[in-house]
Amino acid sequence: MIDRNTQDLLAQAAEASPTPELARRAIRLVDLTSLSGQETEAEIDALCHKAVANHVAAVCLYPVFLRQARPLLAGSEVRLAAVANFPDGSDDIARAADEAAAAVADGADEVDVVAPVNAIMEGDVGIVGELIEAVRVAIGPSTTLKLILETGILADPDRITAAARAGVMAGVNFLKTSTGKVPVGATPEAAAVLMQVCEDAGLRVGFKASGGIRTARDAAQYLALGDAIMGKDRITARTFRFGASSLLDDLLRVAGGGSSAEGGSGY
Rank of each mutant, 00 (worst) to 15 (best):
I2L: 15
D3M: 05
L9E: 11
L9H: 08
A11E: 15
A11R: 13
A13D: 00
A13W: 04
A14N: 04
A14V: 00
A16R: 12
S17I: 14
P18D: 02
P20G: 00
E21I: 10
R24K: 13
V30H: 07
D31N: 09
T40W: 00
T40I: 03
T40G: 11
E41M: 06
E41G: 12
E43M: 08
A46G: 11
L47D: 09
C48M: 12
H49M: 09
V52G: 09
A53L: 14
A58E: 02
V59R: 05
Y62K: 11
V64P: 02
L66R: 05
L66F: 05
L66P: 11
Q68Y: 00
A69D: 02
R70L: 04
L72G: 10
L72V: 07
L72H: 10
L73P: 08
G75W: 07
S76I: 02
R79E: 12
A81T: 12
N85M: 00
N85D: 09
F86T: 01
D88K: 14
D88G: 13
D91V: 06
R95C: 10
A101G: 09
A103P: 10
A103N: 03
V104Y: 03
D106F: 02
D109F: 06
D109Y: 11
V113D: 14
V113P: 08
V114S: 03
D124Q: 07
D124W: 04
D124T: 04
I127F: 04
G129L: 02
E130S: 14
A134V: 03
A134F: 09
R136E: 07
A138S: 12
G140M: 07
P141E: 15
T143C: 12
T143A: 12
T144G: 12
T144P: 07
L145H: 10
L145S: 03
K146M: 13
L149R: 06
E150R: 11
G152M: 07
I153A: 15
D156I: 01
P157D: 01
D158C: 10
T161M: 04
A162N: 14
A163W: 09
A164L: 06
A166S: 14
G167P: 08
G167D: 09
V172C: 14
T179S: 09
T179A: 00
K181L: 05
V184T: 14
E189I: 06
A192K: 05
L194Q: 03
V197C: 10
E199P: 01
V205K: 03
F207I: 08
F207H: 12
S210P: 07
G211W: 00
G212R: 00
R214A: 01
R217V: 00
R217L: 06
A219T: 03
A219V: 02
A220P: 04
Q221L: 09
D227H: 15
D227N: 13
M230W: 03
G231E: 01
G231R: 03
K232I: 01
K232A: 15
R234H: 13
R234T: 01
A237L: 00
R238M: 12
F242M: 03
A244R: 01
S245G: 08
L247E: 02
L248R: 03
R253Y: 09
R253V: 15
R253E: 15
G257S: 13
G258S: 06
E262W: 09
G263N: 07
G263V: 04
